[in-house]
């Protein structure tokens, strides 16, 4: 593999990893608090992309406003999903909420099929400026790539600031350690959980929109596989840990791109890498990179 190809792959890996990382944050925060794999997370992402698609295409909004409206819409949807489907089951056996989450995922997918149609739509609603290609040395990079990387890193910094420097962030982290105690300290658990879903969904939708810009199409099942992989990224980083999810996302993206880069004939198996990594990891180090403690009392 030539150097310019390698650089290209590293950039692509970072890009893909950043997209995974943004989705993974929602998984890891929800799992950290509710111990629930929110299967519908990827589908909320998909809905966010559709929202912005229709706001731009049908209501002729400027592209940036359409994106923002779509992202906010995804946040509202995430909040509603929690309110309607997960909150009533909070005290039920954990597996019940998992089953409901799977149901919610299929609900959103089929809703999208019914409302938006099952045929993929082209998502090239952004200014042509983004598709310009810069040539640096022998490496060709789209302007879009820089835009995505910039947004990704910006959002990550905002998120870290929010979680570690603000009161609400501290409450969110406290709640993931112990719900009853946190509520005794005067925090409104329901509101914080709702906020967690909103933030996670908005980040996922942002990632989804950038995903749709890069592979320019939108379709009802676009969220499932990236969602599943982002969950795996969260497991790699140690589920429950936000920095872990970010690191895990980048690692997974990089590994996927680099393996195909070095062994092009494995390209057909690309989607399987993440699953193999997940299984190996669960067998040997289920706590991931950033260990989050939990112990069962007998």
């Amino acid at each position: 593999m030539s150097t310019s190809n390698l650089i290209q792959d590293l950039i692509n890996g970072t890009l893909l990893g950043g997209l995974y990382a943004l989705i993974a944050v929602g998984y890891t925060m929800v799992y950290g608090i509710l111990r629930l794999i929110n299967f519908a997370h990827g589908d909320i992402l998909m809905m966010g992309v559709y929202f912005s698609f229709y706001f731009i295409a049908a209501l002729t909004m400027p592209w940036w406003l359409g994106f923002i409206v779509g992202i906010v819409g995804a946040g509202v949807l995430g909040f509603m999903v929690e309110r309607i489907a997960y909150r009533p089951l909070r005290s039920a056996p954990r597996i019940s909420s998992l089953i409901t989450a799977i149901g919610m995922s299929f609900f959103l997918e089929s809703l999208a099929v019914v409302v938006f149609g099952g045929i993929p739509k082209s998502f090239n609603l952004y200014p042509t400026f983004f598709s310009k290609i810069l040539i640096i040395g022998h490496t060709r990079i789209q302007v879009l790539t820089f835009f995505i990387l910039a947004v990704t890193f910006l959002l990550m910094f905002v998120l870290i600031w929010l979680l570690y420097k603000t009161k609400i962030g501290i409450a969110m982290r406290a709640i993931s350690v112990d719900i009853p105690t946190t509520s005794l300290m005067g925090a409104n658990v329901d509101n914080i959980i709702g906020l967690t879903f909103i933030i996670g969904s908005m980040l996922a939708a942002t990632s989804g929109i950038m995903w749709a810009m890069r592979y320019p199409q939108v379709q009802p099942y676009m969220g499932f596989v990236p969602g599943l992989k982002a969950f795996i990224a969260a497991v790699i980083g140690g589920i429950g840990s936000v920095p872990g999810a970010l690191v895990g996302g980048f690692l997974l993206g990089m590994v996927e791109i680099l393996i195909v880069g070095f062994f092009p004939n494995l390209a057909g198996y690309r989607d399987a890498f993440a699953y193999v990594i997940l299984i190996v990891l669960l067998m040997f180090r289920p706590s991931g990179i950033f260990k989050v403690y939990s112990e069962q009392k007998v």
Binding site: A85, S96, I99, T100, M104, F107, S110, V113
Partner: peptide
């Protein structure tokens, strides 16, 4: 198209709830 799946998913969630 997709309506039957939507109905199934809805019924499924209602059962779970």
């Amino acid at each position: 198209p997709g309506m039957s799946m939507l109905i199934f998913a809805t019924v499924f969630i209602l059962i779970m709830l």
